[in-house]
Amino acid sequence: MKNSIRVRTEQKAEVTEVKMLIRHPMETGLRKDSKTGELVPAHFITEVVCKHNDADVFTAYWGIAVSKNPFLSFTLDEVKPGDVLAISWQDNKGGSDSVVVDI
């Protein structure tokens, strides 16, 4: 299957901007199915881990309020050519995916 994470990096004057999109339904567990009227079970990403050359940049803990197909962008300092960025996520149902990109 195609990777669910898409990453784009852009070198700015001082920092590198990283933008990413994850394909995920992000169901809150509070929404009702319009046909059956039953609650759609919660299915959302709980954790996103981002590493820059094996050093943690951040761990994001997400709740149900993050939109479907989440978008995330952040800036990185001290990026050298050849650096790698590793991003992975986990959801509440045990699903996960990861990607490693060259900056």
């Binding site: 943690d56 761990t59 994001a60 800036t75």
Partner: peptide, 21 residues
């Protein structure tokens, strides 16, 4: 609580995402 980012200490932080309201 929508999101919590725990990061290595940095002097500048800039995070953008999309939320449901």
């Amino acid at each position: 609580l929508a999101a919590q980012f725990v990061m290595r200490p940095a002097n500048r932080s800039n995070i953008a995402t999309r939320l449901k309201l």
